[in-house]
């Protein structure tokens, strides 16, 4: 599972249906099934993450797999070992599934070609973050009953966002209409080649939206020349209380987290009735159980 670009609409729908079954497990008295008993999962996070790593870890626990967490600082990468060598050493310990978060685009693919273990991309640079997009798709499908024909507006730092890219691939494959909104430096017109609309005026787009997905402004990937400044960004593109009033009453407000309250979204809006931000977190666990099961459940 390296990205949504290479998956077909049918494959994505199958993952969402499998997620239904694993979401149900979370409602049981005992929230644990033996589906991956005896399998070992390595959470290999070269870039910091709490939410995604914890979500994968808990998903693996609920499937009865054993989990090892490795961060960059705790690995021999700091001693000059290459990514490939570290990964091959982990595989020599019989790791069945490797979940990789890396700052370089293509790192999961690089490992997948060199390892026998299943490799799951937990975010690679500005390339893809497939499980985040799958949980967004699942949340939309759960709340709206469908994805086909919905108008999804993704706001923010699209250029540097793997979440946006994976969402664009998944949403367009499932028949949604996607509009990207943000400053022209962060939302260039080239994205239109992916079959989406591009706008730099949020107020024109919001009244027609069925879903608004607000992306975090990524300070760590940001260079000053791309970015107008926090206050100006909020004025031009933030989902303020005033802007939220112009949304359709059934429009969903999403955010992959972590939220910068008062920057891309007002605090009251993030906690409001239209917000499904915490549903996304709950569904992320079920989606990752489904992906781990589908990647790691067979012999090998």
């Amino acid at each position: 599972m390296l990205g949504l670009r290479e998956l077909s609409a049918e494959e994505i729908k199958f993952i969402l249906e499998t997620t239904d079954a694993f979401k149900q497990v979370g409602t049981r008295e005992i929230k644990k099934v033996p589906a991956l008993r005896g399998k070992t999962l390595v959470n290999f996070f070269i870039e910091p993450s709490t939410r995604t790593r914890t979500s994968f870890e808990l998903a693996a626990f609920r499937l009865s797999a054993d989990v090892i967490n490795i961060s960059k600082s705790a690995s021999s990468l700091t001693k000059g070992e290459t990514l490939k060598d570290t990964a091959r050493n982990l595989e020599a310990l019989h790791a069945d599934i490797m979940v990789l978060r890396h700052s370089s685009a293509g790192a999961p693919q690089f490992l997948a070609q060199r390892l026998k273990s299943s490799v799951i991309n937990a975010g690679d640079g500005a390339h893809e973050h497939p499980t985040q997009a799958l949980l967004d798709l699942y949340t939309i499908r759960e709340r709206r009953g469908q994805i086909d024909n919905l108008h999804v507006v993704i706001v923010g730092d699209i250029l540097f966002s793997r979440v946006a890219r994976s969402n664009i691939f998944g949403l367009t494959k499932l028949g949604a209409r996607v509009t990207l909104v943000g400053p022209s430096t962060l939302v260039p017109r080239e994205f239109e080649k992916l079959g989406v609309a591009v706008s730099h005026e949020i107020d024109k787009v919001l009244p027609d939206a069925d879903v608004v997905n607000l992306l975090r402004i990524q300070h760590e990937r940001q260079r000053k020349e791309y970015f107008p400044g926090i206050g100006e960004y909020t004025n031009l593109f933030g989902l303020t209380k005033e802007r939220a009033k112009r949304l359709k009453p059934d429009c969903l407000i999403m955010h992959p987290g972590p939220i910068n309250r008062g920057v891309e979204i007002d605090s009251d809006v993030a906690d409001g009735l239209q917000s499904v931000i915490l549903d996304q977190v709950t569904n992320g666990l079920a989606v990752r159980m489904a992906v781990l099961y589908l990647c790691g459940g067979i012999a090998g």
Binding site: F22, K23, P34, A35, K39, A290, L294
Partner: peptide, 26 residues
């Protein structure tokens, strides 16, 4: 009652059984 995720042949099967959502009264 879905049995796919409770089977005892993890790691030996060639095909992955399709899981379905269970639903029992509580």
């Amino acid at each position: 009652i879905d049995v796919a995720m409770h089977r005892d042949d993890v790691g030996t099967r060639a095909d992955l059984p399709i899981v379905r959502a269970s639903n029992l009264p509580t």
